[in-house]
């Protein structure tokens, strides 16, 4: 029981990281029906930039700078890789373009920070503590809280501010949003900035647990993509549930079966969802009206 509760604790923490990255996928999909396949690299860059900064300044000052960096990086991805593809009405151009940019970012990171996995300082104490019989490391709690807070902040922005409503309007009907005087191109750029900002934030959160390195983004980005598909690309609750399922499946499989198989249950679930409910567990199936 003791072991299981610990597994659940770390599963939830990993799951929330997946959820917050998946949430980033949803943001750009909502406005432009495109995804940043370099999302994992945005996370990696956030973690490494954070690592370089944290040696020179307070952890809590570093966070907003990393987030700003992430936002700018995301805007660049949209302008360079996505906008031209949307403009030329290329159906799949953005897929290759975002992957290519992701690889470039990874190469640049390897040249700046090297190939090694680097330790990332934890802003909170390393001593585990017990809540409701579950042993947790404070950093895990921070990951869970930080991820939830980030998603909540974006949700509040969308519901409360007129600019958030302009974002929702663009997501639901691009042309009609344009008629309302909303600069929809700017909203799409903004969604990429927000998405990469979320990923950079997740990178800083997860780095003390996983170590930081140029390679860290690829696997996280892919798993978060699986979570977005499992949960549904248009469901906020979906990514949280999907993230938790994948996170817990991983930690328990790694302990009870073998670490070698830890990725299998989640990916089997992905295949099942794709076969049975392609819109995702919580996804709304959009019926295309002609």
């Amino acid at each position: 029981m003791d072991v299981l509760s610990q597994l659940l604790g770390s599963g939830v923490a990993v799951g929330m990281i997946y959820a917050v990255i998946a949430f980033g996928y949803q943001l750009t999909f909502a406005t432009s029906r495109t995804l940043n396949f370099g999302q994992g690299e945005a996370l990696m860059l956030g973690a490494l930039v954070g690592l370089s900064l944290v040696g020179h300044m307070n952890y809590w000052l570093m966070l907003p700078i990393v987030m700003l960096f992430g936002a700018v990086q995301g805007a660049v991805v949209e302008r360079v890789a996505v906008r031209p593809a949307i403009k030329s009405k290329s159906e799949f151009g953005w897929i290759m373009a975002t992957i290519a940019l992701g690889i470039i970012f990874k190469n640049v990171a390897e040249n700046i920070w090297g190939h090694d996995q680097l330790p990332f300082p934890s802003p909170v104490s390393q001593t585990p503590f017990t809540v409701l019989g579950v042993h947790m490391v404070p950093m895990q709690v921070m990951v869970i809280g930080g991820a939830l807070l980030m998603m909540l902040a974006v949700e509040l922005f969308n519901r409360r501010s007129i600019y958030g409503k302009a974002f929702v309007a663009t997501a639901s009907d691009l042309d009609a949003a344009g008629l309302m005087g909303i600069n929809t191109n700017l909203v799409i750029t903004f969604s990429y900035a927000l998405s990469s900002m979320t990923a950079a934030f997740a990178g800083v959160l997860v780095a003390p647990i996983t170590l930081a390195g140029a390679e860290m983004g690829a696997v996280l980005g892919l798993k978060a993509f699986a979570v977005a598909i499992i949960g549904g690309l248009n469901s906020g609750v979906g990514v949280i549930v999907g993230g938790l399922i994948l996170g817990i499946a991983e930690t328990t499989t790694a302990y009870y079966i073998s670490t070698g198989y830890k990725d299998v249950p989640g990916l089997v679930l992905l295949l099942l969802v794709l076969a049975v409910k392609p819109a995702g567990l919580f996804g709304k199936t959009v019926i295309k009206k002609v």
């Binding site: 302009a166 639901s172 009907d173 042309d175 009609a176 309302m180 909303i182």
Partner: peptide
């Protein structure tokens, strides 16, 4: 082409968005 996931008031307020 109303925005189905926004309230009636929010739809109307977005109509005034160009005035911002």
């Amino acid at each position: 082409r109303v925005f189905p996931t926004l309230s009636v008031t929010d739809n109307l307020r977005l109509g005034a968005y160009p005035r911002l």
